[in-house]
Amino acid sequence: MTSAGSPALVFHDLTLGYDRRPAVHHLDGIVHEGDLLAVVGPNGAGKSTFLNGIVGQVATLGGRLDLCGRTVRDFAYLPQRAEIDASFPINVHDFVATGAWRRLGAWRRAGREEELRIADALARVSLTGFEARPIGTLSGGQLQRALFARTIVQDARLILLDEPCAAVDTRTSEDLLAVMTGWHRERRTVIAALHDLDQVRRAFPRTLLLARNPVAWGSTAEVLTPENLVRSRQLVEAWSSDREPCADDGHGPSHGHAHDHATAHRKDAAA
């Protein structure tokens, strides 16, 4: 399946990392408007780094990323452990309404249109009736639903989600997947890091298989082959051990370099 849309994100040999230690190497590729792209890979493969890099929260160490005329502010981003302070006294309705922040700013009140949007978002994540509940009383799955509702209200053309279905029950996971495919039908661009390959095969037309380096990027059926999956696991394991991690790195295979990779990786594993 090819995308007919114009480019939304263009990666030019992009390398991302922390403290000058690369965590995702040499990404080349294009995300088109309307793509529904899954980012998969073993733990420590750099999926979160990839998404954090797109929203500018991780330093670019090499190459560049073209946002195609948009700014990070036009994106909706749902990080894996959203830094939500659930003990803060705010109810579900007001929390979901914060998704309208960019349109309403500090003063404008949410008019009829925004209220309809909020009600519709709550209905789509099956949280109708929870409006007055403080977010601190929600279960993990319900909070994730509320975060999806806020993302719906944001009404962004490009949506990034980091493990949106981690640590939620199967029913919630399926409901959230339905929201994501709904966004796809609305021709929004959706990029989601996921670990459930079955879900990816069912719902995501395109996949990026990441193992520090991009292993494969294309239609899901072509990417998620047994050979590619084995290769990605081996690559990440190679990164974890002290074996020479990438010969074609281009940073020079000096001893110090390899050592840097190894320590960076241990830090990731500890985190």
Binding site: R73, F88, D94, W101, R102
Partner: peptide, 16 residues
């Protein structure tokens, strides 16, 4: 309003 958002989800406000 921004203060409340900052308290609940600082990253959200930072990105928007």
């Amino acid at each position: 309003r921004p203060l409340v958002i900052e308290c609940v989800d600082p990253l959200f406000l930072r990105l928007s």
